[in-house]
Design a protein around this nucleic acid. Structure first.
Length: 834
RNA sequence: GCGAGGGUGGCGGAACUGGUAGACGCACCGGAUUUAGGAUCCGGCGGUUUGUCCGUGGGGGUUCAAGUCCCCCCUCUCGCACCA
């Protein structure tokens, strides 16, 4: 009779597997609900972060099922990637062997946790049956010009021996191994995500209130749209012009110099033949090699050097010296900036350091005069244009439009939009990834592989080289091929795809994972998409979530996804869960502060581990793992176990919440029944509306506590027994999404033949929430002075009189005049006296 | 610097539309049970000069009533960061 989680959990896991309760269907008239967690990388072991993530998702999946939804809740493996190669080098195994062994281990661990997945839909991205469709997409990308090759300076990780996307460089370090990233000029494959920048930005508006605001903001900032103008400046003594980008064309009259990034293409010509050419070139080299790590813009003093050349301000006609400046970014805008020291802080600092003229051309609102001599900082605010020729007197906003018109009319420039977002570099010089389905032919050039030849299989009969380099470029059996177009001898691309490509569409493949004729059936994807609730870590706020949004839009435009039947966005609602910490720090092997989920399951059982992960804190917040915390969760489960087992045979098997008599004789029974309904209401709202599982669990604990309190008083009464039974089955039903094994076992022991996995979420009745008496709080001048119990249908005047008669009130209004009595229905009376 | 989210008992955290601050859990204390310990059940648990005041980072304000709304400030965490 003792609670033995090991025994009962495995039993129910087998039962669910055989019963197929958690298999979704594609027929029937139930509404669909697609619940998805970010699929794991098969690193070898499940960690607590996974357990938390999947426990959250499992609650939602169970809850929706119980509410009558047809729920898709799949799992799979993000199986390509570097760790497999590193482990392979270290252990002399093949990445595939390592990966599939890990998948097998982790699958067992997930099954031992009892999550309600539809295992039929499991997929692994390293399976050719998966990546063949990705290769098909890539061919379409190439045909549409959205996949292209470009030679450019790239982020190169010397440790991983591969390039990295912009999104994969954090503080100048590789996101994976934290090596310093170098700049290397290479020819690489890119996906033209910038073509979708506007759509990716605009559609963020539709996610407002559904995605965490910070994730939306991070994506907005990452795309970084700026609306402004390009202005061309003629270089004196040259036929060349320099184009700058600005969002503040209204300050053009205040532009007193021009600054160029060290990598600006015209710089070479500008400095040629200068008297101090050697110095200039040395300076340029210094800037190009500057270490971007540990760089803090506020602290670092701006550095620059005068090129000796001038250009003309087309508005003032004045000569503007052309400088090289370290604060100008080569990758943004045009790599050239007009210097307006009075109205831009960076330009101001630069001008003060190098004694360049400061000219005020905007008078900000609420400021009388602005004298360059006395300014200690730039004034970037908008205002009235001054010293600006025919534009003087205009407001900045109006001036921007008028200046832009003028630029366009006179061929000096044009309106333009600049974005921070760069195209996505997807080639990786690695082995364990999806081969890019392209060949190089001397006669035909770059030719995509024929669709009928897909998949281009990654050969599994070779090992990663000890230095980590891919064996593919050294494997003629892989790269030798015939040209799909002319049939002549050709060479296959040996770069593989960034693994973020696989995770950009897996959620779509889950809708039809065994389809061998197409990536997915249009009807199935139209039925299941979008993902209704997506749960994962906030670390994917930019990379994965941006790429996935991009892919859905592209697949729609390619016709793989029926446009009118699938929403614009892949993830309707996003929940970013917090981390599981230990001692205030992120769990990590190197710090030695990890807790192994398997060990915890062995000690307490899966239900306890799941319950604690959900009870310790609201899902979005980080929480600290504590030994006493999980003890507490176990204690609660054991307490419920004892209660239920103790009542088995005493209480009747009842069908649904509120089966107890409406008017039980015993007051304790009536109170328990009221609490039962109140908890059904609270727990349901906490799960469905607020996603606050901790408070949902807390309210069920309250109900259990009350049952302990009243059970001995009411168990001998017929009505009381029914109320007890009803409350008990309600507890088991409400807790089922959290601790399914326990609840199912207790349900059975109580003699109910109806499985909870197929049960409906209980429904509360509004009338059951009311008792015949209610407690009214009585305040004097806003301070609690007493409580009165009155019948629920008592009138306002009677309640006010009762409140005034209360001893505590009388004491505090003694000698005072009662000015006013405020009554808040069903809640309180406040006596205002003075 | 910009953006987002926090700051409530010894601790994790509740308080949803302004209406009993501290639900629930942990830790601690007491009682019952027990040879004992553990476990369990019951009770207590913000501070205090103990029947009274003070308490939600600090200071002002609105209100009959403020953790909640408004203004100013401090502080912590995360993200972005010389983006023109």
């Amino acid at each position: 009779m003792k609670y033995n989680p090991q025994e009962i959990e495995v039993k129910w896991q087998q039962f669910w597997e055989e019963s197929k309760f958690f298999h979704c269907s594609e027929t029937g008239d139930k509404p669909k609900y697609y619940c998805l967690e970010m699929f794991p990388y098969p690193s070898g072991k499940i960690h607590m972060g996974h357990v938390r993530n999947y426990s959250i998702a499992d609650v939602l999946a169970h809850f929706r099922r119980m509410q009558g939804y047809n729920v898709l809740h799949p799992i799979g493996w993000d199986a390509f990637g570097l760790p497999a190669e590193n482990a392979a080098v270290k252990n002399g195994t093949h990445p595939a062997t390592w990966t599939y062994a890990n998948i097998a281990d982790m699958r067992d661990q997930l099954k031992r946790l009892g999550f309600s997945y539809d295992w039929r839909r499991e997929l692994a991205t390293c399976d050719p049956e998966y990546y063949r469709w990705e290769q098909l997409f890539l061919i379409k990308f190439l045909e549409k010009g959205l996949l292209f090759r470009k030679k450019a300076f790239q982020n190169w990780c010397p440790t991983c021996n591969t390039v990295l996307a912009n999104e994969q460089v954090e503080d100048g370090l590789c996101w994976r191994c934290e090596s310093a990233v170098e700049q290397k000029e290479l020819t690489q494959w890119f996906l033209r995500i910038t073509d979708y920048a506007d759509e990716l930005l605009d559609d963020l508006d539709t996610l407002e209130d559904k995605w965490p605001e910070r994730v939306i903001t991070m994506q907005r900032n990452w795309i970084g749209k700026s609306v402004g103008a390009e202005i061309r400046f003629a270089v004196q003594g040259s036929a060349e012009t320099i184009t700058v980008f600005t969002t503040r064309q209204d300050t053009i009259y205040g532009a007193t110099f021009l600054s160029l990034a060290a990598a600006h293409p015209l710089l070479d010509e500008l400095v040629s033949g200068a008297a101090n050419e050697a110095d200039l070139r040395a300076f340029i080299t210094t800037l190009l090699n500057a270490d971007k790590r540990e760089y803090s813009p506020e602290l670092a003093e701006k550095r620059g050097m005068f090129t000796g050349r001038y250009c003309l301000n087309p508005f003032t006609g004045e000569r503007m010296p052309i400088w090289i400046a370290d604060f100008v970014l080569s990758g943004y805008g045009t790599g050239a900036v007009m210097g307006v020291p009075a109205h831009d802080q960076r330009d101001f600092e630069f001008a003060r350091k190098y004694s360049l003229p400061v000219r005020v051309v905007i008078r900000p609102d609420g400021m009388e005069t602005l004298a360059p001599e006395t300014m200690t900082a730039a004034v970037p605010e908008a205002g009235i244009m001054v010293n600006s020729g025919e534009f003087s007197g205009l407001r900045s906003e109006e001036g921007k439009l008028r200046i832009a018109d003028y630029l366009e009319k006179n061929g000096l420039g044009k309106r333009t939009v600049t974005r921070r977002l760069r195209d996505w570099n997807v080639s990786r010089q690695r082995y364990w990834g999806t081969p890019i389905p392209v060949v190089y032919c001397d006669r035909c050039g770059i030719v995509p592989e024929k669709e009928e030849n897909l998949p281009v299989r990654l050969p599994l009969d070779m090992l990663t080289r000890p230095d980590g380099r891919s064996p593919l470029p050294d494997s003629p059996e892989f790269y030798r091929c015939s040209c799909p177009r002319c049939g002549g001898e050709a060479r296959r691309e040996t770069d593989t795809l960034d693994t973020f490509v696989e995770s950009s569409w897996y959620f779509a493949r889950y809708t039809d994972p065994r389809n061998s004729a197409a990536a997915f059936d249009p009807d199935k994807i139209a039925y299941w998409m979008p993902v209704d609730h997506y749960i994962g870590g906030v670390e994917h706020a930019v990379m994965h979530l941006l790429y996935a949004r991009f892919f859905l839009k592209v697949l729609r435009d390619f016709g793989f996804i029926p446009e009118s039947r699938v929403p614009r966005e892949p993830f309707c609602k996003l929940l970013t869960q917090g981390m599981v910490l230990m001692g205030g720090k992120k769990m990590s092997k190197s710090k030695g502060n990890t807790v192994d989920p398997s060990e915890m399951i062995g000690k307490y059982g899966a239900d306890t581990v799941r319950l604690f992960c959900l009870f310790a804190a609201p899902p979005e917040r980080d929480f600290d793992w504590t030994a006493s915390g999980i003890e507490g969760a176990f204690r609660f489960i054991s307490r419920l176990w004892r209660l239920a087992v103790g009542l088995a045979g005493t209480v009747p098997v009842v069908a649904a919440c509120g089966s107890g008599p409406e008017h039980a004789v015993l007051p304790q029974a009536r109170e328990l029944r009221r609490k039962e309904h109140a908890v059904v209401k609270k727990a349901g709202e906490d799960i469905a509306v607020r996603f606050q599982f901790n408070t949902a669990i807390a309210s069920v604990m309250e109900l259990v506590n009350l049952m302990y309190l009243v059970k001995d008083d009411i168990a001998d009464d017929e009505g009381g027994k029914t109320v007890l039974g009803s409350a008990l089955f309600t507890v088991l039903t409400l807790l089922f999404p959290f601790t399914p094994h326990l609840c199912e076992e207790l349900r059975l022991r109580l003699g109910s033949p109806a499985t909870l996995a197929e049960s409906r979420w209980p429904v509360y009745s509004e009338s059951a929430l009311l008792l015949d008496m209610m407690t009214i709080v009585v305040q004097v001048n806003g301070k609690l002075r007493g409580k009165i119990d009155v019948p629920v249908d008592e009138g306002e005047e009677a309640i006010k009189s009762a409140a005034l008669a209360d001893a505590g009130v009388q004491k505090h209004i003694a000698g005072l005049a009662v000015k006013k009595v405020v009554y808040v229905p069903r809640k309180l009376v406040n006596v205002v006296a003075g």
